[in-house]
């Protein structure tokens, strides 16, 4: 990849050809305020806060302008702040600012931009407040859509289009009345949405928020347990419970993408109906037993029937190690090759 040399705020940096000024800056640890940019998506250039000054060109939208050899860029000036401060103040004038009640509190791009620009209550109060009591769409079992926190960056729409190719949502209506809408403005649950949650993950503010929002205390890498694609997951754990699943961006299979089952189908792990103890049927009813009692019973019965009378089903849901031990047991102990699993179903 060809390297381009440029200067940002007096620092000489290099970037791959094709990168935008914003990407080059972020890659080099220089923050330029931005709201509608997302690394996985094509630039939209709609929030207009990522303005920078390019020598010889004046103010320029950095998320859309590719780097060029020898560009001299400054990310900070009174002139820039004068232009980009207003859009942010305007967003706040139309935003439910009850941040404590928001799932994105402290992890919010809007908060970050506001603090970068030094916005204060007073300066926001000079604006006329917009309507922040629009109805919230709670129809999806996994996430809510709150238009009062929406900044109309279009990241959800672009995700659904560019990454998922589903196009369940798009902008509807014009100007100030513009909304993010499903076809016919139906609740999201009655739309084409497949609940993959990719938009929820990318929402830079709290407009799309998962319904269960327990913050995990640690995260563990594993592999999704559903289909054969083998997506990498990061299980969010709190105590002895799995409370969230996120796609593993480092995984070569899915690069962070997940489907609805992978992302939201984890409730079964700590489900109350999990079998917690060995069960032995006595007089037609299951009774809890100890491992020793159950295992001894099984071993005794298998021994009684002997070779060729016992068959084994292993599981395509179990690990390689499980399957290996089960087939080894079948062959080495039961003395039969009658082992199979549901590969054909």
């Amino acid at each position: 990849m060809e390297k381009i040399k440029l200067t940002i705020d007096g620092m000489a940096i290099t970037a791959d050809r094709g990168k935008t000024i914003l990407e080059a800056a972020l890659d080099n640890g220089i923050y330029i305020p931005h709201l509608c940019h997302h690394q996985d998506l094509a630039p939209a250039a709609v929030c207009r806060v990522c303005l920078v000054e390019v020598e010889g060109r004046g103010h320029t939208i950095s998320c859309r302008t590719p780097v060029e050899e020898g560009l001299t860029i400054s990310t900070e000036s009174d002139h820039l702040n004068k232009i980009r401060r207003i859009p942010v103040e305007l967003i706040f004038a139309n935003h439910d600012t009850d941040c404590i009640a928001c799932t994105r509190n402290n992890n919010c791009q809007l908060q970050r931009v506001a603090s970068y620009l030094g916005l204060e209550r007073d300066s926001m109060d000079r604006m006329r407040m917009g309507n922040i009591e629009k109805p919230i769409d709670t129809s999806n079992p996994f996430f809510d859509r709150n238009p009062n926190r929406c900044i109309y960056c279009g990241i959800c729409i672009r995700t659904c289009d560019e990454i998922q190719n589903i196009n369940a949502i798009d902008f509807a209506s014009r100007g100030y009345k513009m909304t993010v809408s499903t076809f016919g403005d139906n609740p999201i649950a009655d739309s084409r949405c497949e609940s993959c949650g990719e938009c929820v993950v990318r929402c830079p503010v709290g407009a799309l928020s998962p319904k269960t929002t327990m913050e995990p205390s640690r995260s563990v890498k594993s592999v999704c347990t559903y289909c054969g694609v083998g997506c990498g997951v990061e299980l969010g754990v709190r105590g002895n419970s799995v409370v969230s699943v996120e796609g593993d961006r480092d995984n070569a299979v899915n690069h962070g993408s997940l489907c609805v089952k992978g992302r939201y189908g984890f409730e079964f792990i700590n489900h109350r109906e999990r079998i917690r103890k060995p069960l032995i049927k006595k007089n037609g009813k299951f009774e809890e037993s100890t491992w020793d009692e159950a295992l001894d019973l099984v071993a005794k019965k298998f021994r009684e029937y002997g070779k060729e009378k016992v068959a084994v089903f292993s599981s395509a849901k179990c690990s390689n190690e499980d399957n290996y031990v089960i087939q080894k047991f079948t062959r080495a102990v039961l003395g039969t090759n009658s082992i199979d699993h549901c590969a054909r179903l």
Binding site: I91, G130, G154, G175
Partner: peptide, 25 residues
């Protein structure tokens, strides 16, 4: 213009509305 703004970018969508609100006032 406020009614005809497409709504795509923030300054136009919210800025024209804000200015209109002020002028209304």
């Amino acid at each position: 213009t406020q009614k005809e703004s497409c709504g795509k970018c923030v300054p136009c969508r919210l800025g024209t509305k804000q200015m209109l609100d002020i002028l209304d006032d």
